[in-house]
């Protein structure tokens, strides 16, 4: 089975930002969450995958093909949802379909109609009158209507209510049910990923912090909490995102390291907490993996 997406050693330099030697793989049939603080490089990564930007070095493969050489084929196979509407304000749902469908070899009118109905979107109303949730649903409907094998979503659920976010999760799980289709889901609402993501890639400051299964990530890190007196120098170097108050200290630490410091409280962090603590810039440890080890 060919991997849906492969990045290796991908770098891109901008004034003021450097995406450095990024590498991860999305195996076919799974959901990968792309997490990290704002400005970490998630959107840049997605633009590189879609050939909207060219990498300075490294290579990218979508279904085994290089976007630079097979742009058309890849774009037929990839459905994209951005965080804001990328259609004309004055369009109706019908206009959108008419404007877009001709570009695709395999536009599925029935599938589109079914989704529009499921999402309860009025076909003849101007989309400028739609709510944000409806915009997202329209984009999702178009992304799912041209037989795409990879769905790429860039922060689609920010600002959406819990019901809609839950609907998104359900649709994504349904999407991968046949084992042939895959999802790359970039978000900073980690709770959306916690249940349904199989793999996680965590980017921080343009560098890879972690890539691997969600389970592995959750098992490899824990929250450590203790009284001020218990914070030794040794311990401090191992803690990520250290937070010290009058009450005590807390931070993130690799599980294997935590075993050394026996009698301090260890807790299971949520994915959100892992992202928050690991994203903090102070502290002696920035924890980044070198060259994409897990």
């Amino acid at each position: 089975m060919i991997n849906a997406l492969e990045l290796a050693d991908v770098s891109k330099r901008f004034p003021g930002f450097y995406l450095e030697r990024l590498g991860f793989t999305v195996p076919q049939g799974y959901i990968m969450g792309l997490v990290g603080p704002n400005g970490a490089g998630k959107t840049t990564t997605i633009q590189l995958i879609l050939n909207m930007l060219k990498p300075d070095s490294g290579h990218i493969k979508v279904f085994g093909l290089d976007p630079r050489g097979h742009e058309m084929q890849i774009k037929e196979d990839v459905g994209v949802v951005f965080d804001s509407l990328m259609f004309v304000d004055g369009w109706t749902v019908d206009d959108t379909e008419k404007a877009i469908s001709r570009f695709y070899r395999h536009w599925n009118t029935k599938a589109f109609a079914g989704l529009i109905e499921q999402f309860e979107l009025p076909r003849k109303k101007r989309i400028s009158d739609f709510s944000r949730g409806m915009h997202m649903k329209l984009m999702l409907a178009t992304a799912l209507s041209h037989e795409a094998r990879l769905l790429v979503l860039d922060e689609p659920t920010s600002g959406l209510d819990a019901v809609t976010r839950d609907l998104f999760s359900e649709i994504l799980q349904d999407y991968i049910k046949d084992g042939e289709r895959s999802v790359l889901f970039s978000t900073h609402i980690s709770s959306d990923l916690e249940r349904i993501a199989d793999y996680i890639t965590f980017i921080k400051d343009g560098k890879l912090f972690y890539t691997g299964s969600l389970e592995n990530l959750m098992e490899n890190f824990c929250l450590i909490k203790g009284k001020p007196g218990q914070l030794t120098d040794d311990l401090e170097t191992e803690i990520l995102g250290l937070r010290v108050t009058n009450m005590g200290f807390e931070g993130l630490i690799k599980t294997e390291k935590a075993r050394k410091f026996g009698d301090i409280l260890i807790d299971q962090p949520s994915l959100d907490e892992i992202v928050v603590y690991a994203s903090k810039r102070e502290g002696k440890n920035d924890g980044c993996f070198k060259h994409g080890q897990a």
């Binding site: 799974y30 959901i31 799980q173 993501a197």
Partner: peptide, 17 residues
């Protein structure tokens, strides 16, 4: 694996394990 993951709303890797 996938049907179970979908019904329980969890990841496929979890049911696989």
């Amino acid at each position: 694996l996938r049907q179970l993951a979908k019904d329980l709303k969890i990841s496929v890797l979890t049911t696989t394990r």
